[in-house]
Structure formats: C-alpha cells, structure tokens
Design a protein around this nucleic acid. Sequence first.
DNA 1: TTGTACGCGTTATCAA
DNA 2: TTGATAACGCGTACAA
Lengths: 337, 337
Amino acid sequence: MTIKDIARESGYGVTTVSRVLNGQPKVSEKAREKIMDVVRRTDFHLNSNAKRLKQQSSTGIAVVVKGSKNMLFLSILERLQSLIAETGYAFIINYVDEGADEVTEARRICGELRPEGIIFLGGDHENFKRSFAGIGVPCVLLTSSARELGFPNLSSVTTDDAFAAECAIDHLVALGHRNIGILGGYVESSYPAARRYVGCVRAFERYSISADKSRVVAAKFSLNDGYAAMERLLDKRPDITAVFAMSDVTAIGAIRAIRDRGLRVPEDISVVGFDGIELGAYLTPKLTTVRQDGEAIAARSVRLLLDAIRGEGGSAHEVIPFRFFDGESATRLAEDA
Amino acid sequence: MTIKDIARESGYGVTTVSRVLNGQPKVSEKAREKIMDVVRRTDFHLNSNAKRLKQQSSTGIAVVVKGSKNMLFLSILERLQSLIAETGYAFIINYVDEGADEVTEARRICGELRPEGIIFLGGDHENFKRSFAGIGVPCVLLTSSARELGFPNLSSVTTDDAFAAECAIDHLVALGHRNIGILGGYVESSYPAARRYVGCVRAFERYSISADKSRVVAAKFSLNDGYAAMERLLDKRPDITAVFAMSDVTAIGAIRAIRDRGLRVPEDISVVGFDGIELGAYLTPKLTTVRQDGEAIAARSVRLLLDAIRGEGGSAHEVIPFRFFDGESATRLAEDA
DNA sequence: TTGTACGCGTTATCAA
DNA sequence: TTGATAACGCGTACAA
C-alpha cells in the first residue's frame, strides 16, 4: 500500500495525495475529502523511510543515557520523551554503561540512524574532547556543563553543582558537623562529580576544615555502589558524623550500609543527598538533599536542541536553579559527640 | 557523501562498495582494504533511510511503556534496551499515560515509523480488543497475559499474578493477620491488577476471610497514588492490621502514609508489596514483597519477538516464575491486637 | 570478481 | 488546482 495506490483508488495523482497527506494548501476541498476517505478506509500511512530519504532528514532525536541507575535521569528521561513526542520527532534511546564511551556510541548512532539531534544524559568530558568533533548534528549535554569544551554544536544544561554541593556542606556545618565524609562520583571522569567536589572543598576552606582525602570515597551513582562506598568510608573513618552523597541513590545505599553497621540515621550519622528525586520524601527519615529541577532541565534542553536543529541560535550553556530540601536525614550534632 | 562517492574515490563500483560495507563475500581482499580505507578516512556511514527503504525494513523495535512511575518497568526497560542493542535494532521508546490508549498509539507508531516489532510494557486488554487488529507486526505484551486475546501476532510474558498475590496473602495470614487491606491497581483496566485481586480473593476464601470491598482501594502504581490510597484506606478501615499493595512503589507510598498517621510499620500495620524492585531491600524496614523476575521477563520477550520477526513460531504466552521475598515490613500480629 | 542499471515510496520541480 | 517525472541513497538482478 503506497501513495500510488491511494492515487489510483481516489482518481487523483500522487502529488495531490502527497499534498493532502501533508496538509498543504492548493488542494480542492473535493480532492481532499475524496483522498482522505480512501486513506481512512485503507488505514494508510506514509512510509517514513521514503519520506526521510527524500527530505534528507532523519529518524528523530537520539538520547544517550549514561548510567541507568540514576533515578534523576529516569525522571528527566520521562519528561524528555513527552516533550519530544509533542514535537513529532521519534525518540530513540540508548543506554551506555557508566564506563563506556558515550560519544563514540553517539557517532555510531549518527551514522546508522541519522538523528536530527542528540541529547546526552550525562557524559565524560574526556570522551567529548576525543571524539565529539566527528559529530555534525546539534547536541545538548545534560547535567554537565560543556561551556569550556567550546564546540559550536554542543549546548548544555546544568545545575550549579559546585554551589549546590557547597550548600549541602554549609547545611551540615551549620548543624555542628566538621567531620564530614563524601561519597562522590568519579571526579576524573564525571564533570558534575568534580564540580560538586570543588564545592565541598570550597565550603571546607571557608570553615577551615581540612579536605582530607581519607574522608572521600568514589562511587557510581547506584544503590549498591552507595552501599559499598559507605562501608569503605566507615572502615577508613569510623569517626565521621555526617556524609554528603553526590546522588540520592548513593545516599539511600549509604543509609542502608550505616544501618547495617548498627548505626542510626541521622542520630549517629547525618546524610545529605543530591538530586532531589521524588522518592526521597517518602523515605524515613525524609532525605535531606539538594533538589535539581529535572523538569526545567528537560524543558530547556529540548528547547535548545530544537532551536539548534532549526538553525536558530548557536550553542548555549544554561544553569538551572536548584533548591535545598531540608529533610530529616541530617540533624544537629549531639553535644557530647 | 554516498556510496557513489566512495566508489569513485576507491576506483571500484557501488556494488563492490555495498558488498564490503555489508560484509558480504565475493570481494577481493584488495578491494575490501582499499574501500575500507576510504570509508574510514571519510568517516562514511550508510544512510539507514535509504537502506531500509530499499530493504522494505524499518526503524527498529518500538517499546510502548504504559505508566512510567512503575520502577519495575524501569528495570525491565533497561534490560530490554541492552538486549535489543545487541541485536542491532534501534530502540524506539514511547511512554503513554496510564489512562491513555497504548494500542492506538502503537498504531500511529506503526504507520509512521514502521517498526519491525513492538513490545508493550503494560497494557489494557480493552484497548487491545478494540484496536489491535489493525497492527500487523509481531508484538509482545509484558506483565499481562494476552493468551485469551487470541491474536496470532501478539505474544506475552507474565508472572503468575494470581498465584503470586495469593502467596502474599498467605504470608500475611500465616503471621496472624485477618484484617487485610488491599491497595490495588484498577481492576477494570489492568489485567495484572485483576489477576492479583483474584489471587487475594482465592486466598481469603481458603481462610474464610470475607473479601470485603471496603478494604480495597484502587491506586495507580506510583508513590503518590499509593500514599493517597493508603490514606483513604485508613479512613475507611482504621482497624486493618496489614496491607497488600499491588506494586512496590504503591507500598512505599503507603508506608509513608501510615507513618504520617503516627503508626508504625510493621508493628502497627504490616505491608507486603509486589514487584521486588532493587530499592526494596535498601529501605528500612526491608520491603516484604513478591519478586517478579524482570531480567527473565525482558530476556524471554526479546527472544519471542525476534523469533516472531524472523517468522519462526507463532504467538506464545509464557509465565515467568516469581519468588517471595521475606523482608521486614510484615510481622506477626501482636497477640493483644 | 566486478559493474550497470533499476526500483524502493516519497517529495519537489515544473509544466499544464 | 493538478499531474508527470526526477531525484533521494541504497541493494541487487543481471551482465560482463
């Protein structure tokens, strides 16, 4: 069943059928009705491969997700999909492992699927430096600033990670904590993790707290990595009274580890997370955290990408405001501690 | 940049280039090397639109997800994506709201994107009865049996929902509970919810417990719906001592609601969930639940779909075993209660 | 082993 | 307002 069949069936030519199907003007009402009639009767749909081949356009918008355990990504992803669905683009999703090279993967996708644009949900700057030059379509990197990468076709939307982390540490210090552990992402490969670490150090310096490496343990943003990292931290520094986890899932894993050691949260160890996933407010204690505005991040990034696809405006690097959420998982340090 | 350019550049014809690019035999080693050389140098990729147009094939495998709040779906989705990635198909994802018509949506997708097959993650039998006949490609429905729908191109992979729910109730009864509330999905539109309810009733009958409708509250599978449903249940039946929630996220929402009323879990109210999401074991108390084998569900469904796409084997309806996970959120009914 | 030429289904151009 | 026809880039009969 092709446009030719519809043409024959309706008594019109293929051009007219094409016009009707694409809602173009310059078609008589009579022709439109007659053709739509046949189309409906036969449940005909345009072949998008042929259409895109002809129009030199492509499959849709590809999303490359790095690290699927991160619940913030999941909520952003959901938002992205509904925003992209509204535009009529297909939504092609690809998960890559946290250790994988998302940019090389994106190049492969570009070659095979020819997306109009790519959204990177998480990404390693090193990979971008090494391979991004080969990518021609507009891209947006989320939760990691690409400003200093300086690619003309790469925008980014982020939270001010350093400042947000600083706020988290501020909060803990204000509660009397000075012996604070950090469960981080991998600072070398994760730009947000690096920024958050910078924020921590900045706060420590302000309070003249030594930024002791022995209180920092790297962890992927997942429940079990948070758990394992917290165990290591407790082994190395049983004296800590508070922990800042660079993602909420890490924090949740950490809380489980703390409890499995027979300690309480927040009485024995205060925990502050990062992300502000919906789940946090359902936990007991409610997770104290820095809330990234996933909705806004998704909305802005789609906006930037669509503008870039339309050729309007070059690359932009936006910073979305965060909010500190004062939950119950961090409390004042007991006087006698 | 097309294969013509590569042909010209390499001094060979398009056929040879095409053969090399598709790894076909009947090409001299010299030609292969020379051509691959040019391909690499120019970073050339085949145009998938043209390729698929020619091969009458399509975009990839579409996945229609109904109800994105369900964390079990998320883990299945992740698994699906990596399995499908291995096959070389593109992975096209579409979320539809829990109230929406996923089958009509799938028909739209079929028309526009021409996927080779469709995986439905959740779905309403009514929608399938009404509109599925228009879909020609092989499909698999997950977490809801399509056996009685009887479509030749619709397979399904499920858990034995009725039996699993029965086990959950058994567990509660064994702990001494007889006044058990149910936080369910919408029985009219969700087949798994209906099956789970059947299992509950079956268990109640065995123990001569009245299956009182006043102890049943419908809820979508999300945190806030679980919360709201539990509030309604507590209003209607403050005398319940245990709750069976038809999904883990519902259970987590319910636990928050119970605690916000000043009650304890499990001391005052025992809670059993359903799904067995990874998170459950990180909560305090650890969630007692029925664990669906998401990994196996994903693996089997991809297998079934690929077989069907290759024209091997018709529709099949598989049931994946579940395991009861005895956590800490359900405990023995206090004697004096 | 290699090349020529055609057609996949659509849209764009141009003439009617 | 309409229609014939030429691309779009690829795979593949068929010929060499």
